[in-house]
Design a protein around this nucleic acid. Structure first.
Lengths: 235, 235
DNA sequence: TTGTATGGTTGACCTGGATCAATCGAACGC
DNA sequence: GCGTTCGATTGATCCAGGTCAACCATACAA
């Protein structure tokens, strides 16, 4: 059995994660930088609002949510992150984190000290450009969520959510038609701007229509085309 | 009368815009880079979805909105931008713009070729870091909008919107209690996930309560504290 | 095995904001 | 000046999704 070195150069997420597009030699320089690896138990947080920002984090395995809280306790989930995705970009602008990153299952992350990432990306053009693309992708993703929250109806939102998850699991080599949700109905609701009861009802509706089979957190997508259709032209 | 040189080094927005924090010598190097300046007439677009991305844009004067369209015509306004703010960050990730940037009044912009910005920021650490902060700030701003769309009620959204504008006008040396809205009720509504009638009604309500005085696009904030209070604990 | 806790489902009812429609007002072209 | 157009306001009505409440399912601890 091969020894699994915990280095970017041997990480099977390198095509999704920060190392994307780097040469072998460049990859090794990135390895030096990604010093700290850490396990985060389910329910624990990777960082919290107000903590000093010093590193961004790449998810090696596991599943996270990020959220923002209002003084009166209202929560908005701003995203769900899976292996190969980066966490912590929100902290760059003020040097303090502006949201909470909470693990939804036992997870493992790589910490990338930000100032070192900046110096390395001053030397490696490819890394610099890729990092900019990752940040930009986050902005575009957020626009998509705004669209969802601002203009879509409940079932459209849930369909969009499921299709997005499906596509991201696919990109990671998992089934794109069958997966376990790591988050509760309430967390899905918070992300989608809906109450948990509404999320639950939408799932039941999809099940009745034969679009999906749901049992608690286990989801099978039975008719992806219908879900897509539903998302586009309110039917 | 002093001649107004159109260069970052003499631009009165330099403390808000990309040049922030640069030394005089660094500023001059940025000047070389910002070659193109362009006027955009009210209603015209600076860029549209699908166009090839090659530069980011700094607003010298004027006012813009960015929006995303769904196939069926639904529009989501993703932001309103004013002098000193950057447009086009959405285009980095795919090298194509993913939203439309439309001018809401006669405006003037500086085009900053992106590949040249990347090379310069490989040389000037301060510029690199500031650019990262600007991108991060955009992500954090988007989280705020998600919070607004996902958890706030109509009047809270409008209050948050007005307070945000107020604070940005203030940062630019304009009155923070009295200003003209450049956008229609429909555009405000699209941004806030509301219909124009609801926006109009919320304005009327605020007026009745004495929080604001509104006449068409002219707004005076009479009781900022009440607006803040309304935003925080649903009253 | 049973008790408890947490999360999910479902039903009945209510309401904030959408929808539909009429009217008003400001800006602009002629 | 006067009509036309576009945006804003306001009223009446409707409904998607919120709220409240009961109940069910699963996981885990005793």
């Amino acid at each position: 059995m091969a020894v699994i070195k915990t280095a970017c150069s041997s990480c099977n997420l390198r095509e999704l994660c920060l190392p994307y597009g780097l040469s072998l030699e460049e990859l090794e320089r990135l390895d030096d930088l990604v010093s700290t690896r850490r396990r985060i138990k389910r329910g624990d947080s990777l960082y919290r609002v107000g903590e000093t920002f010093s590193a961004i984090f790449a998810i090696r395995s596991g599943f996270f949510k990020t959220d923002v809280l209002l003084e009166d306790g209202r929560e908005q989930v701003t995203g769900f992150q899976m292996a190969g995705e980066l966490l912590g970009l929100d902290g760059i602008c003020t040097e303090h984190h502006t949201c909470n990153a909470i693990s939804l299952e036992d997870s493992e992350i790589c910490a990338i000290p930000f100032s070192r990432l900046e110096s390395l990306s001053r030397e490696i053009h490819t890394l610099q450009n890729h990092f900019h693309k990752v940040m930009s992708r986050e902005i575009v993703r957020d626009h998509g969520v705004m669209m969802l929250l601002g203009t879509m109806r409940a079932e459209e939102r849930l369909a969009a959510f499921l299709l997005n998850l499906s596509q991201r699991f696919k990109a990671r080599g998992f089934s794109h038609t069958e997966f376990y949700l790591r988050m509760t109905r309430e967390e899905i609701g918070s992300y989608l701007g809906l109450k948990l009861e509404t999320v639950s009802r939408a799932f039941s509706r999809f099940q009745e229509e034969g679009y999906v089979a749901v049992q608690q957190k286990h989801v099978r997508l039975l008719d992806i085309d219908q879900l897509k259709a539903l998302m586009n032209h309110r039917l």
